[in-house]
Nucleic acid binder design. Structure first.
Lengths: 187, 187, 187, 187
DNA sequence: TATGAATGAGGCTTCATTCAT
DNA sequence: AATGAATGAAGCCTCATTCAT
């Protein structure tokens, strides 16, 4: 019994550094040997804890998701005006930009393997973050939720492709001006 | 007399179908043999026209960029109010959603190879589309341009991960409401 | 606990039969698959022990050199008149003619790769055998050493190209007559 | 009819530069495309004149042999004392050292392919040069002929492996001293 | 629990060669 | 006579994975 706890603890210990590896290189570009080397173990050990490369990949995503859920709860800023909440959220994303960029890379990578396996994981990832945003900001309109998610996703991807782009908060502020411009233009 | 084949024309002919292959599977996940098979040629022919897998990949991106530049010019909607231009743009993106999704995948994929080679290509891709948007919409503020680019990028990536999300135009409309909500919340 | 295999011992075990393979076919003419097959392993195993074909080739030469150095020490015939020493040497070469023929082939083959890598190996091979001859026969004059080395080298190469040529000892004897003929002719 | 002359002339024109290519790189290390490029033609042209890589190789050797036979006749120094003839020969070899080194490389290379084809070519090459030496120096004893051939062969190979070794003439002189030493030692 | 030797399928690439023009 | 596009087998090497220890 207690062995299982140890086993799981070791498993998670091995899983954690994998996010960066998979995100920075891509699922197919990084080999099991390289992963093992980075973790300071041998491939045999990897296969002792995981059923294969894909299983390792999936369990890593699951672990990240579980950890992010915990982290998100801690950041919920209680009762605040809507705008303040959004600012809080953007600050949080800004601080953890690299982390979320990695998750996006990994998720996009994983989606390409679907068809071979169930496409449930991708949905679970998306829904986890959608739920988190919805809960924190209290958005009810689905289209608004989608739009907001798209913006946040887009900023992170854009800044990954072009690191000297304006940071998240600045872009969100500019977005508001765009909305006004549209409104003006429509009069 | 040589076999009559326009080398460059044939090269582009081979390049065109590669966008979908690379985008849907990823650079490392698809093999030269698979590419050749899809194109109806042998790997030898591929290497007759291209210096290697990476060169093929890069030339494909260059070709797509050149073609998109042409296409963008045709779509310029002349003098219109700002909002109308944006709607036009979103409709255009909506129609070619798959295409742009492929370009994003391919660009993200390519970025991981940089460092080994010059990081110019990624910049060129980003700048090409930034310029196109800037020219068509006449945006002067850089932060606004970044923000708009992020939104469009985000919607495409989001809809790729979750195909039943609201379409681009609907999300842009919802975004305006979000802007208003922020404005209201700030009073 | 790891599978009990002495890595270096296994490496040498794999290296030993390679001399004949490389010598009889040539570096470029023999494939890694063929080598693996002859050794009763797979190519994967080969690459587990060696960094590549060239590394395998170089390590093989190094191993042969180390073994020949040991063998040469055993054959040192102590105090004998000069002529007796030479006869001993020629007998030794005669017995191991195939072996030295292989080394010559392999060395000539390797020399063509140099320039890409350090040209040290060829020199080391030549010097190893030059030293051995010098030590055993006590030759001090460099030109004589060169001349003797050339003769021995030449006989081996010649008999490789034309197996029914006279054996080494017989040729050395004939060579003495040639020397006399020259002397006579010079009077 | 006259066409055939042109054809053969062109054939020899293509063949001539191949000796250096094959000698410096080795039969298997150089590709038909590389050969074609060096000759300023395409592979198609190569296959127009030759039945394949091996045929090209063999015809090249034949051509070299034919040319060397002509050259050798011109160098025959008529009536001279034996020692003078040998000096003449060694001077001739010294001047054309690179050429003969190439022939040796090519011959050794070719010999490894035999078994697949008739082993006649190697014999023809050896015999051609043996005959030439025999004729020029008037040696009758076969063992002496073998010994002399071995020496000359050995010097060239040795100087190819170690370019700063003493030149041919110097080594031949030293060899005479070795003969005397043996004689002294035998008393 | 952990090792690392071993596998063999498959990766990218180059080869000698053919053939329509 | 000459081109160079096209082939497909084979080259070197890496991969995910298994398994005896």
């Amino acid at each position: 019994m207690p062995k299982i706890v140890d086993h799981d603890a070791r498993r998670e210990e091995l899983l954690k550094p994998c996010l960066e590896l998979f995100a920075s290189r891509g699922f197919h570009a990084i080999s099991m040997r390289e992963i093992a080397k980075h973790l300071g173990v041998t491939t045999g050990t990897l296969y002792h804890y995981f059923d294969g490369k894909l299983a390792l990949f999936e369990q890593m995503i699951d672990l990240v998701l579980a950890q992010d859920a915990k982290a998100a709860l801690l950041e919920v800023p209680a009762d605040q005006p809507w705008a303040a909440k959004l600012i809080n959220l953007s600050q949080y994303l800004g601080k953890r930009e690299t982390h979320f960029s990695q998750i996006i890379h990994v998720t996009l990578d994983y989606k390409r393997h679907e068809g071979e396996r169930s496409r449930g994981l991708t949905d679970r990832v998306i829904n986890a973050y959608l739920d988190s945003i919805q809960t924190q900001l209290g958005i009810v309109d689905e289209a608004q939720l989608d739009a907001l998610f798209s913006v946040l996703l887009g900023v992170i991807v854009y800044r990954d492709l072009r690191p000297n782009a304006y940071p998240i908060e600045r872009q969100l502020a500019a977005l508001q001006l765009i909305g006004q411009e549209i409104t003006n233009s429509l009069k």
